[in-house]
Amino acid sequence: MRRRLDALIGTLLVLLVVVGASRWVDTTWRPVVVLQSLGPFVVVGLGLLTVGTVLLRRWWMLLPVLACAAVAWGMALPTFFAHTGSGEPNLTVMAANLDQGRANADQVMAAVRAHDVDVLVLTEATPDVIGRLDAAGLARLLGNRAGQARPGTFTGTMIFSRLPMTAVPEPSDAAPAHTPSLQPEVDLTVDGRPVRVKAAHPVAPLPGATDQWRAGLAALEHWKQGVPAGERLVLTGDFNASFGHPGFRALASGLVDAQRAAGLGWVRTWPVVGQRWPPFVALDHVLSRGLSVIDAGQVAFHGSDHFLVWAQYALD
């Protein structure tokens, strides 16, 4: 019996270490890409394994289990501590994946009103859902718009704003083959100061599309590097990637993730699939530079497999 317990603990530890270590492997091999989404389970699993090892009094296994747990929890704990600013907020940004137009328009607009949103980024936008949103008050509240809604596809993306904004033309060296979805960007004026806002929606790492997914993240990183260092920017949407993916960490480097800045810990925005299981990974993000995060969060709404995300900023 003791040998079986030792073998079970050792096997579980090896499995958790393999999943955790996958976050440092920058690959497009889909099994690894999927494993990289499971990082939070490694932290929880190592915590439970530590408790189980103590209760079972398998003392010789406790040291390696504790060492791995300490590394995992040391990486996770900082995300539970807020480092937000204290200024007066003057910009609120929200992003929602509308799941090919199936989203409940009234609930999206209720969230827009509740958080007094200035800029709304909508991915997987179709003409039908934009019509329903306009009927629910979108056109009145956020009268400026850029981008395009497309019927029956994942590729429609739009930006709405109550603030003055100007659409930024797509650069001539853009690579739409990497990201068929529209990713519009606009220049805003917030209290007389400019802010660049870009929508993000690289393709999902589905079978046969992982190379395209990785290239889409790299294209967004290239875009970030092309924005002058002193310019304020917000990059938000459904990234189809989490901090467990090296490509997303490279993209987010030098930017502030609003949910992390707010100390929200294990943020989960996908998948929302009825009552069968809860969401477990954050694919939707609000990233920024040159702005101070005051607050952030996510909201569930019917008709989509994503939570929407929002962030409140004060301009530095």
Rank of each mutant, 00 (worst) to 15 (best):
R4T: 10
V309C: 07
V168M: 15
G39M: 07
P176H: 13
L62N: 07
V17L: 14
S181G: 10
L182W: 05
W73F: 10
A314H: 14
L12G: 07
S242R: 00
F248T: 00
L182Q: 06
L283S: 02
N240I: 07
A114K: 14
D173I: 13
V256A: 06
G290T: 11
L66H: 01
A167M: 12
S292C: 04
A175H: 15
P271E: 01
R140S: 15
R260V: 01
A174R: 10
D106M: 06
D187E: 14
V43K: 09
V33P: 02
F307V: 05
L138R: 00
V54A: 14
G237L: 04
R4E: 06
R30P: 06
P246T: 02
L56W: 14
L15Y: 05
V117K: 00
D316L: 13
V186A: 03
A250H: 02
P171S: 13
Q36P: 09
A67W: 06
L235N: 00
D116M: 07
A262N: 04
W59H: 12
E124H: 05
R145C: 02
P40V: 03
Q36C: 14
W24F: 15
I130S: 02
L264T: 03
A241E: 05
R113M: 09
K198G: 14
L142E: 03
G247F: 01
V293D: 01
D295R: 01
A67Q: 09
G39S: 07
L35M: 15
G297P: 05
R193I: 05
L255G: 00
D99M: 12
G45S: 12
I130E: 03
A215K: 10
D238N: 13
L56S: 13
V195E: 07
A72G: 09
A261P: 01
F154H: 12
F307N: 10
S161M: 08
D134E: 11
D134C: 11
P207M: 14
W310T: 09
P202D: 11
A200E: 00
A282R: 08
L77N: 05
S242T: 15
V32R: 13
